[in-house]
Design a protein around this nucleic acid. Structure first.
Lengths: 110, 110
DNA sequence: TCCATATTTCCAGCATAATCGAAATATGTA
DNA sequence: TACATATTTCGATTATGCTGGAAATATGGA
């Protein structure tokens, strides 16, 4: 992953509303969530949310797909993994004892 | 980790110069790097770098310690782990097959 | 066709962030 | 003390990002 792409992803996530939206999508899994449902849960104006989803989408962190009148958004887990990997790349100056805890960012489902 | 703190960390990293500085510190390990050394490697003006290191520091991602005339900066690996954990929290809607690759953000030293 | 729902696009105003030069502070040395 | 090095702070300018209202687009149903 190149620096530019990482900065775009981080900038997209560095916003309270967008971060909340992204995390909801991450938690939603492969079903994703419709824009309206996200707006309701996050209590955001539809146009503001749309602009923010657009930013996440351009950063490659989410995808969108029309389903009837709704547009369903989904997290792009690959992009997320690339981003996390970029941050820890060549980490710790060769000290596994520092590095090991970083690898334990486990989630209940794993 | 609360949302505010995560946003501050992500905003701190969402900048080409700061991201590069942080990654150098992550790679430097426990020795850290002096501000001047960072400025040289990153080809940044000392005052600009100082402002950026201050932002990373306030976000809790790095620490500073005076050593003679220099000030040595070090990555805060705990803060980094918290941030990564926050992003993947309750992920994947209970689908380990989606989630598993996320846990493989391994680094050579681990 | 007409209307309601779902979402996006456009626009303008406001707030925040980035950068640089210059000056200030702190440390070490002759 | 006087000076060089290392780094930070200050101040001003410029650029960028965020928000909300209004209008536009797209879909589905009566």
């Amino acid at each position: 992953m190149e620096t530019k792409s990482a900065v775009a992803s981080l900038a997209a996530l560095a916003h309270e509303g967008r971060l909340a939206a992204f995390r909801l999508l991450v938690q939603a899994g492969s079903d994703g969530l419709a824009a309206g449902e996200l707006a309701r849960r996050l209590d955001m104006l539809p146009n503001t949310l749309s602009a923010n989803l657009n930013i996440l989408s351009h950063a490659g962190l989410i995808t969108s797909q029309r389903d009837g009148r709704s547009i369903v958004y989904r997290a792009q887990y690959d992009a997320m993994r690339d981003l996390l990997g970029f941050l820890v790349e060549d980490c710790c100056g060769g000290s596994p004892e520092i590095c090991a805890p970083l690898m334990k960012v486990a989630s209940p489902c794993c």
